[in-house]
């Protein structure tokens, strides 16, 4: 058991909470303001969408690592949980979205 590595007290819980809240607030603010310099087209979509996805992954990291406690599990367990997800989901996203882009071109003609 590596449970003893985890921080004690409740301070760390509120730290993660404030981080999640602030990141969400930033996302909503960006979604409403839509700053001009982030609206430029880039790699099939706009820069702003990449910012949203990165911020979402930051939130996901903190939820999984701290709230779900994965950071303090055994190394073997961390890898056997994260690898399938980290390999399969980007792979699925890549093949399906590439096909969808092609379907879009075909439909327009």
């Amino acid at each position: 058991m590596s449970d003893h590595d985890q921080p004690s007290g409740t301070r760390w819980i509120w730290n993660v909470f404030w981080l999640l809240l602030i990141v969400t607030a930033v996302e909503v603010a960006l979604g409403i303001i839509k700053p001009g310099f982030m609206m430029k087209a880039f790699g099939g979509t706009i820069v702003l969408n990449y910012v949203f996805i990165i911020l979402t992954l930051v939130k996901a990291y903190y939820i999984v690592m701290y709230f779900m406690h994965l950071k303090y599990e055994a190394k073997t367990l961390i890898w056997s949980i994260s690898l399938p997800v980290l390999i399969l989901i980007p792979y699925l996203t890549f093949i399906v979205l590439v096909e969808a882009g092609y379907m879009n071109e075909v439909t327009l003609k």
């Binding site: 996203t93 399906v96 979205l97 096909e99 879009n104």
Partner: peptide
């Protein structure tokens, strides 16, 4: 993730 990717696929298509 399959559901959300399917959403993305049809959003790209239409």
């Amino acid at each position: 993730s399959a559901f959300l990717v399917a959403y993305g696929a049809y959003r790209f298509k239409f």
